[in-house]
């Protein structure tokens, strides 16, 4: 059965994919749907949803919540995507090295990884953002720094089991370079758990960003969902829509990413990887 057919049979995964497509569409169409800055103070503050031309209400400065959510989609994806890519680069490199080289290299890398896992990741992220002062760059870097250890562990395990397989040994006999073998032979075969992991990491990164913003450690120049909840939480009793709608946006996106991740997991690893489906960074 092809990958796609296995994936498509999973109802949850399809729902997740549909939600993601919608959110992506919203991110792309935001400049068309709301052709103005989400920071623009366009009307009366604290308008409930549906009133005064505000689909999802207005915030404490009369800014359009709907516009914020639409424009914020891109930011959330960006934060989630970029930090995941960064974490993957670091995690895959270290994991591949540890798994392929073995011996003291493996030992050293795994000690290093364990060390990072001993520090609560959210606490570390908070400290890092505070040190670098909150900006989009520091947030992405901090999220990446706290998210790579699980990648390393998974990739190392894959490399460990793959490096003794025939096709790798064949390549070694043929005298190919170690790096070439790692990149062209082993990595492609280890991709499926990485892909699954990545989809979940994007979700976690979005949650992390919103938590940082909630504590006042967001980038003040970017309208992200986390920022919107952060600025709306103190007025939740007079304007519930300010934090409820961005909260729903985060919820749906994270949910969708998880559904897709599980679908990918089932489709890529029909037998084995059920329990790897849950990786929380």
């Amino acid at each position: 059965m092809s990958f796609w057919r296995r994936f498509a049979r999973n109802l949850g995964a399809m729902v997740g994919l549909a939600i993601l497509a919608l959110v992506a569409l919203m991110a792309v169409l935001a400049p068309v749907l709301f052709p103005f800055s989400p920071w623009e103070m366009r009307g009366i503050p604290f308008m409930p949803p549906g009133e005064a031309g505000f689909l999802l209400g207005s915030d404490s400065l009369g800014r359009d919540v709907a516009a914020g959510i639409a424009h914020g989609a891109l930011v959330s994806f960006l934060v989630g995507g970029v930090s995941t890519v960064a974490a993957l680069l670091l995690g895959v490199t270290l994991g591949a090295l540890a798994g392929y080289a073995g011996g003291w290299v493996d030992d050293a890398i795994m000690r290093f990884t364990e060390f990072f896992q001993t520090i609560p990741s959210f606490v570390l992220a908070v400290v890092l953002v505070a040190i670098f002062t909150p900006s989009i760059a520091s947030i992405v870097v901090s999220i990446a720094i706290v998210s790579w250890p699980p990648v390393t562990r998974v990739v190392r395990a894959e490399f460990l089991s793959l490096r003794s397989r025939e096709f790798v040994q064949a390549a070694e006999v043929l005298g190919r370079g170690r790096i070439a073998i790692m990149v062209t032979e082993i990595l492609p075969n280890a991709l499926s758990p990485i892909i699954v992991l990545a989809s979940l990491m994007v979700a976690t990164a979005i949650l992390l960003e919103s938590s940082l913003s909630f504590l006042g450690l967001g980038d003040p120049n970017l309208m992200s969902w986390g920022f919107m909840i952060g600025s709306g939480r103190s007025v939740i009793r007079i304007a519930w829509w300010m934090s409820v709608f961005p909260g729903i946006a985060i919820f749906l996106t994270v949910l969708a990413l998880n559904l897709v991740g599980e679908g990918l997991n089932d489709a890529l690893n029909p037998r084995l990887a059920r329990r790897r489906g849950i990786v929380v960074t």
Binding site: S37, W39, E40, M41, S60, L61, P220, S231
Partner: peptide, 10 residues
């Protein structure tokens, strides 16, 4: 104060 700086930016 954050709202103030956001207003000033606009």
């Amino acid at each position: 104060w954050n709202r103030l700086s956001e207003y000033l930016r606009q």
